[in-house]
Amino acid sequence: MRSILILFLLCSCGASPAPQFFNSERHEVTLEGIDFVVFRKGDRAEVVRLGYLGKRARDPVPRLMEEAIERTTGCRARPGSKVTGLPGDTGEARFDLDCPE
């Protein structure tokens, strides 16, 4: 039981990138009161929403994830490139980037 509690506490310490985003640029931004961490590596980005949101409060999150990418990286999320671990997930998403030359 004690090891489960320790594991839970370690996991709740903050956002960590997926393995393919290790050694990436890390950016933090707050939009409309919601905190996001953006990990950028090359022409890809992963966005992690921090904190708990009730079901109704999650509605703007997909739009805000894309805005978080643009604000922190200067690139746009490529339309149709969004991938989530679970369908409709608002906690984490990955995008291809479209960056100005």
Rank of each mutant, 00 (worst) to 15 (best):
F22G: 14
F22R: 15
N23R: 13
S24I: 03
S24F: 03
S24W: 04
S24V: 09
E25D: 13
E25R: 08
R26G: 11
R26L: 06
R26V: 00
R26S: 08
H27N: 12
H27E: 13
E28R: 14
V29I: 15
T30W: 02
T30I: 08
T30G: 03
L31S: 10
E32F: 00
E32C: 03
E32H: 11
E32D: 14
E32S: 11
I34D: 13
I34C: 11
I34E: 11
I34A: 14
D35I: 13
D35M: 14
F36G: 08
V37L: 10
V37F: 08
V38Y: 02
V38Q: 00
V38K: 02
R40P: 07
K41G: 09
K41A: 06
G42W: 00
G42A: 04
G42I: 00
G42S: 01
G42N: 01
G42F: 02
G42C: 00
D43S: 08
R44I: 02
A45R: 12
A45S: 13
E46V: 10
E46F: 00
E46Q: 11
E46Y: 04
V47A: 02
V48F: 09
V48K: 15
V48P: 11
R49F: 05
R49K: 14
L50K: 06
L50C: 04
L50N: 15
L50D: 02
G51I: 08
G51C: 10
G51Y: 01
Y52H: 10
Y52V: 05
G54W: 15
G54C: 15
R56M: 11
A57D: 15
A57Y: 08
A57Q: 15
R58P: 01
D59Q: 15
D59I: 07
D59H: 11
P60W: 11
P60S: 02
V61C: 08
V61N: 01
P62Q: 01
R63F: 09
R63L: 09
L64I: 02
L64C: 04
L64D: 04
L64M: 06
M65E: 10
E67M: 13
A68P: 02
I69F: 01
I69P: 05
E70R: 15
E70Y: 11
E70M: 09
R71P: 07
T73Q: 04
T73N: 12
T73I: 00
G74R: 11
C75D: 15
C75S: 08
R76G: 01
R76L: 14
R76F: 02
A77V: 10
G80D: 05
G80V: 06
S81D: 03
S81L: 02
S81H: 01
K82C: 03
K82F: 03
V83W: 07
V83C: 00
V83G: 00
V83S: 05
T84H: 05
T84E: 07
G85C: 08
P87S: 05
P87G: 01
D89I: 00
T90Q: 06
T90M: 04
T90P: 06
T90G: 02
G91Y: 06
G91M: 05
